[in-house]
Design a binder for these strands. Structure first.
Lengths: 171, 171
DNA sequence: TTACTCATGTAACAAGTTACATGATTTA
DNA sequence: TAAATCATGTAACTTGTTACATGAGTAA
């Protein structure tokens, strides 16, 4: 079964037309999500795994730069679609750092709670702004996913605002 | 800096009154999120790390079962709060498997897209139902985080419904 | 020619996973 | 007494991270 990174690499090559591992890497690094850093130590071994599994094909260009052009094989396309269309994996909530912490915040003193919530609120606003800026530059495929990310951040923001609203007025 | 698992372990022991590593483990395993399996190979080494860092204290009970009671030290409490209240880490979007796949779905043929979206819709409805069932059994601290999880799933559901709604009517 | 970008890769490490080993206690 | 549960732990493996090494092409 494909890892999330492997699935993402296949879809970058197939739909987004990334040709080299380096371009795939950079597109992860540029993306505003902190999911992956697009680190060489992750991407190159993952590409090698995909090649060995016959899901990616690589061909040298002979440009002196040891550049290899990647393409998704027929088997790779099948594997990618199976990965993308598995509903169980698609709806898992993933690791949500905010959710992990939310219970603790409720236990803090009023003063500390207010400070954390305000800080988180600011960070969320900034995150939403940068997602929207990023979405404007991108193609339809990526815009869909960034839009969803922004919407989810807006729900988190609303949740934080509710908590702030339910607190007694500041002295 | 604490990992997500380490932070979660500290808060389980401190706020939720888990006394043994086994109980911490089980509460992760019982939780509806697929984040962690609460695997022994993750929890016991993490507890050991926290002990060695002076953030958790363990005392044998002498019940013949080699049971060790855990407690959060003063330093552990400080580290836990720093972990919980870091806004940057709290608002990172994490890994959202649905978002990873959403771009691909838009490229599918109408028939396939409709099928995937319907499957995902069903899975989301089930996920929301099980989150709500789970929340009912739990204390305030966990209910807060499960409620948020349910709300985020509802946004994903609304998003899927929008995509379905924007598709041409079935023949 | 110096610095930056393009491009691939490895090494050491971190921190999860599954599967297994071990043994006490409780329950059917 | 057999099976399930409580309880701790290790070993092999997977897959990410950072940091480094290497080298070609390009722009100041």
């Amino acid at each position: 079964m494909l890892t999330e990174l492997e699935g993402a690499i296949l879809s970058e090559v197939f739909y987004r037309g990334r040709q080299t591992a380096f371009q795939v890497r950079r597109s992860f690094a540029d993306s505003p999500s902190l999911e992956w850093k697009g680190s060489a130590g992750a991407v190159y071994p993952a590409v090698k795994r995909l090649e060995q599994a016959g899901l990616l094909a690589a061909s040298a260009t002979g440009d002196g730069r040891s550049t290899k052009l990647l393409s998704v094989t027929a088997a790779g396309r099948v594997a990618m679609l199976a990965w993308a269309c598995d509903p169980e994996r698609a709806v898992s909530t993933g690791i949500d750092p905010l959710r992990m912490r939310s219970g603790i915040w409720l236990q803090l003193s009023e003063k500390k709670r207010r400070k954390v919530l305000m800080d988180v609120r600011d960070a969320l606003l900034q995150s939403i702004a940068s997602l929207q800026t990023y979405a404007r530059k991108k193609d339809t495929i990526e815009r869909a996913s960034v839009d969803l990310a922004a919407r989810l951040q807006q729900v988190r923001l609303a949740w934080v605002d509710e908590l702030l609203g339910s607190m007694p007025a500041e002295p």
